[in-house]
Nucleic acid binder design. Structure first.
Lengths: 191, 191, 191, 191
DNA sequence: CATGAATGAGCTTTCATTCAT
DNA sequence: CATGAATGAAAGCTCATTCAT
């Protein structure tokens, strides 16, 4: 409980700094200072900066998956489940802009590429929720006949620029707009 | 042919390094070395690193716009024009993966955010080709009634992860697949 | 005794290098090396080179003021006080030639000019000891009726070249000579 | 006539830049540009930057001596001659502030020290005008019995800070003030 | 376990000087 | 004689990481 306090503070500070200033704007000394710990202390919890960042990413990913699962039920109709995931994802992004900004940066860095590579090769467990949904959709001929990875891009590709534009204030995504955009995404993949 | 040589070499090296290693992986010394010039020489062509990167972006953007305009005609039917732009963009990305990777990094950096902001405010000339198309589509009630920025995200949002996955070898986008995915994007925005 | 050690060493090295070689001859790397610390260490004690130099100047100025005040008493006759200050200043200069050379360089640099400007405007605390003395001298009609700044130049202007010539070995200022020259300065300002 | 044109332009530009910005603010490229010549051209007239600066100093020194000699006559009374020199020097300084600022910087740099050293050793010809005057003054027992170098400091030491303060706008030296201050200097050295 | 002073490789940028044209 | 593109050593400064306390 004590130890995880510091660990948590460090991760939180890193998240804020990287999300707001980019990787450049988050030197270890600054993370330490804003976390109220000494620089050396960070290295007790994380072997090095790369590990810190990767663990931060993992935690966020876990939270996102959790948010997606909330209220998700296999019993609901297919379209309903799709819309649920899309709305939940977009809502999560704009509710936790720091998470979104960090994850975006992460994907757009050497870290992200290795991660994706590892995922595809099967080193790291994929989020089965999407795979399952798309597999079912293709099998049931509800979805267009594309490889999963393409379906994923078609279905959720728009959500990233949408969230970004919302966070930057270029557009306002209220609940109604969120629903309508995700429904548009559905038009993209539905057969 | 004379002065352009070195300038071009420097830009090309910067493009390669940044596309492959990110901004961090492209120190001026390395750009110089791989370009076969001295460090100081770079500063004869570019005031500083920021200017170098911005000019590189401008050049690439120019090429992309050019590629989009090629074969684009206002006389063609609306859907045809939309599909043309989508296919041309996706094709450009996977034909020039370095350009794609660089532009992606650029957009995901402070540079990119300022640029987007300036674009929206109207400081910098937008790519009128998209604006015009979407304006017409909304006016003619061919497209769903969304703000331009949302339409843009819906229509071309999927292209970025698609191109990325293709470049990383996670999927193969041949001409047929390109057409089919862009047609799916059309389903997303068409009314 | 702990932290002051390194800080002091750095200041001392900077003093020596700048006094002997000028600002050009004192790169941070050299200051670090001769101080027996790493370059980065200097930046733990001084935000940047400007700050280092300004703090060095402040310290020296403090010592000079201290030397002037030593044995200075308002109760002594006016002329006595004037001679005391002149002799103390000249003695200080030739006793601490490095201090003298540094202060000279400092005054002859952008630093010095800003400082003088700030002093005149009143931003920074002046050496009240001189101002008081001259104010009294003018009020009592002991001194010629000149602006303070002119009186200061007349009274102490000769001390700088004198100290310089002594330090460079062009002349030897023993105690007797010091007294006689300062008395000559007195003839310059006394009514 | 042509060649000396460029040479003159280069020297003039160097004078302006160094006087206004210091040695730091006068890179060869800038001197070249403002002189309307190419960088390489400077090296046709001056072996390197040191030589350029030293020659510039020599030229200015020549002009100063010339200004001092103007109206100077051995036939005039001693005191008259002394006052003439002091006033002429001070007037020259405030009439040609760029010259003054440059000469000051020069003296306060490694250049200046070597020069003084060379002067004393006798390598470089001294300005006999002062030496003669002081020699006569001491011999005739009009001046206090000090070494020449000390007399020089006493007599003209105040002029430097006076000129500086005038140029920086801290005090205004009109003709009347010039005369009065130089007369005060006379009090300093006269027996 | 926690600290934070110390490290030094590495970054961007400047500028006196050279030399092919 | 004149040019100015090219050079590269050297400057100020940053920051991930270590280690004695």
């Amino acid at each position: 409980m004590k130890k995880s306090d510091k660990r948590h503070d460090i991760l939180q500070t890193a998240l804020e700094l990287i999300a707001e200033q980019g990787f450049h704007g988050a030197p270890m000394a600054m993370i330490a200072e804003r976390s109220g710990v000494a620089v050396g202390t960070i290295y007790r919890y994380f072997e090095n900066k790369d590990v810190l960042i990767n663990e931060l990413y993992s935690e966020l990913e876990g939270k996102i998956v959790e948010a997606l699962r909330k209220g998700y039920s296999i019993k609901k109709p297919f379209r309903e489940r799709f819309l649920h995931l899309g709305r939940a994802l977009l809502r999560y992004f704009i509710t936790f802009p720091l998470h979104f900004r960090f994850v975006e940066q992460y994907h757009n860095s050497p870290y992200g590429v290795s991660l994706r590579r590892d995922r595809l090769i099967g080193k790291v467990g994929d989020h089965t929720i999407f795979t399952e949904l798309f597999a079912e959709g293709v099998a049931q001929q509800v979805l267009k006949d594309f490889p999963f990875i393409v379906l994923f891009a078609l279905a959720f590709g728009p959500l990233v620029p949408l969230a970004r534009d919302h966070i930057l204030g270029f557009v306002v995504l209220d609940n109604s707009m969120i629903s309508k955009t995700v429904e548009a995404c559905w038009d993209c993949v539905k057969r």
